[in-house]
Design a protein around this nucleic acid. Structure first.
Lengths: 206, 206
DNA sequence: CGGCTAACGTAACAATTGTCACTGTTTTTG
DNA sequence: CAAAAACAGTGACAATTGTTACGTTAGCCG
């Protein structure tokens, strides 16, 4: 357990790693299992040791994908709750079979104040997520749905290491913040252009 | 000079404030003057003492508004360059007559490592900007142009403390990532609904 | 195997946004 | 003042996206 956490937290002293390990819990999540529900109080900082977790956001009735948290990464929204006690305005859901380390939030606060390399690491995490989010803004602002769909499928293919994606049109639609019918229509277009094929209930890329 | 910086950096020790003051420069910027050009190397962390600076982002040929930096705030993108040496992928431009404190980046790095309250402050800044950006994503994803235009004008009215905005359709268009004609069309619609009026080359809210 | 259910296909239409072309008006500048 | 430049108004049309409504298919499970 020490080793897996260590691999995700490079640059920290052995003593600190030891302390982090001893205060953290490891939990497994199945695909589609919630890691954090909307409205939950955040009591831990999750770090994905293995697998992938998606974080989505609600506004009115619309839900959309913010980003994925992959191996070695942690969830920025939990950082946002490090120094405040408000409930989560988002939900996090495992996409793959995933193993997470859960660091208790009060300890994280302590480490942040007492260990510059730890706070540096947290800041790096923020930077990464900020860039990801900025990338999403650019995607949404500068590219149309078709282009974003192609990118979405390609990214997913890389993430899941397969060209044959098991994902429903409905799920794509919510991730991209649109409706199922629109995705069906666009998938037909991609099929015509040979960029993707519907194979039964799966999607083949390329 | 010590006092103005102090007001923007609450919670820091007098010694640190003194050191920050002694290493920082103060500069004035006129409206539309560039604070940072796209491609610049970032050598300082700017903190807006007075006024307002807008930060915009380029992707392909499209430019769009990321956020405003107002009194007491600093620019997250400069944080992003705190631990790396890559040129700016954005530009920052004064919107109002503004006074900025420029903290040299190498000193900022040092303070970040040696002063937990300073790193805490930086993290808080990140949190704020992250929330702002997330807010933009929600706006773009969940609301149409008309709603965003109304919000844009209202926000601007609050910022500039006046109901009579001096802003061209072209400028609104680039901030919202669309074209001038579209803004003209929507302005006409707002006028019909009594939400805003074109008064010569200015726009009256309400 | 047959039926049930969730997922997909699709046509038709509405709404929004993008783009072009051209006109008129205000502001600035030589 | 006159010319130039910047700004605004507008109609027409295309492209994209959203919505409704209903028919079809795949895949699971008894």
């Amino acid at each position: 357990m020490n080793n897996v956490i260590k691999a995700c937290l490079p640059g920290l002293s052995p003593e600190l790693l030891q302390e982090i390990s001893s205060h953290s819990a490891i939990r497994e999540f199945k695909p589609k299992e919630y890691v954090i529900h909307q409205g939950d109080m955040i009591r831990f900082l999750p770090i994905v040791i293995e697998g992938s977790v998606k974080v989505c956001c609600d506004e009115d009735t619309i839900q959309f994908l913010l980003y994925h948290v992959n191996s070695g990464e942690s969830c920025i929204f939990s950082y946002a709750h490090m120094f405040s006690d408000s409930p989560a305005e988002f939900y996090a859901m495992a996409e793959l079979e995933s193993r997470l380390a859960l660091l208790p939030i009060d300890k994280v606060r302590e480490w942040f104040h007492n260990h510059p390399p730890f706070s540096h690491m947290i800041l790096k995490g923020y930077q990464k997520h900020y860039e990801d989010l900025l990338h999403s803004v650019k995607q949404i602002t500068c590219y149309n749905l078709e282009e974003r769909l192609i990118k979405y499928l390609q990214d997913k293919a890389v993430l899941e290491k397969t060209q044959l994606l098991k994902v429903s049109h409905q799920e794509i639609a919510s991730d991209l913040g649109t409706s199922r019918e629109v995705i069906s229509r666009l998938m037909k277009k991609l099929e015509t252009n040979g960029q993707a094929t519907q194979v039964g209930r799966k999607i083949k890329i390329g």
